[in-house]
């Protein structure tokens, strides 16, 4: 598949399949940041020592992660439910390439919450969010989108592998937010949790965004690690998706890996 064709597919994915009419997605993208920022606002009123910038980003990150979890997680299973999976499977584009357009599209759409968080923070709550370098911050956001997309791809696979995962997806939501260092820096975690946190690609994407905000010195290293870890997971995901395709042809079922 040519890059142009793949980009066209990505644009069509964003244009055709972004579902702003879905009430849950409306809540996650538009209202959840408002809700979290209200909490931050009243905490600040009460304590007065809240780091505005970090918490504006944190509230955006929670919404972004929630949106990616729910939308990308069902990227593959929803095709099975609508009986469109076999149409995608016999098309000349690989399932991995199709899934990549879906998860990248979801990560881009998740960016709405980041944008909205900044707008709410500035115009409703009057928070001061100081971004030292807009260029670096933008690059860090792209790094975050890559890590979120890879997480989306992994979720899509996990949702296929475990049929009852929908019963537990809410249990994945909050621990992941905590473990990726959205609120508390990963360095402060116990060693075992720290190790697990560091192998999650999103941890490094989030770290990059926070470091870009404050222009911390290791930002380039953090971004490089984030990209490398994301690429490693991307390769692993491609391999597993190939295997899912083969198993589908062998068993005729989209089920446990």
């Amino acid at each position: 598949m040519t890059t142009i064709n793949w980009l066209t597919l990505l644009v069509r994915e964003i244009k055709y399949f972004t579902n702003f009419e879905n009430k849950m997605y409306q809540f996650l993208l538009f209202f959840q940041p408002l809700m979290f920022l209200s909490i931050v606002y009243f905490l600040n009123e009460y304590r007065g020592d809240i780091n505005d910038g970090r918490f504006v980003i944190a509230s955006a990150l929670i919404s972004m992660w929630s949106y990616v979890l729910y939308s990308s997680g069902s990227a593959l299973t929803s095709q099975k439910w609508s009986d469109t999976l076999k149409l995608l499977l016999v098309s000349p584009v690989s399932l991995s390439a199709i899934l990549m357009t879906k998860v990248i599209s979801n990560s881009f759409i998740a960016m709405f919450s980041m944008l909205l968080s900044f707008i709410y923070a500035k115009f409703i709550f009057n928070f001061k969010v100081e971004i030292a370098s807009y260029t670096l911050f933008s690059i860090a956001i792209l790094v975050l989108i890559l890590s979120l997309s890879v997480m989306g791809l992994i979720l899509a696979i996990v949702f296929v592998a475990f049929q009852n995962v929908y019963d537990y997806q809410n249990l994945i939501l909050t621990p992941m937010v905590l473990m990726c260092g959205v609120f508390i820096p990963v360095e402060q975690f116990p060693l075992v949790v720290k190790v697990v946190s560091y192998i999650i690609p999103m941890t490094w994407g989030i770290k990059s965004v926070y470091e870009a905000l404050q222009l911390s010195s290791p930002i380039y290293t953090t971004m490089t690690i984030s990209i490398l870890i994301s690429l490693f997971y991307l390769l692993a995901a491609f391999f597993i998706i190939k295997r899912i395709e083969l198993l589908l042809r062998k068993t005729g079922k989209l089920g446990a890996i």
Partner: peptide, 12 residues
């Protein structure tokens, strides 16, 4: 039309 466009892109 959108459905057809999507599959046209899939079929390159």
């Amino acid at each position: 039309k959108e459905y057809m466009h999507y599959f046209c892109t899939l079929y390159k």
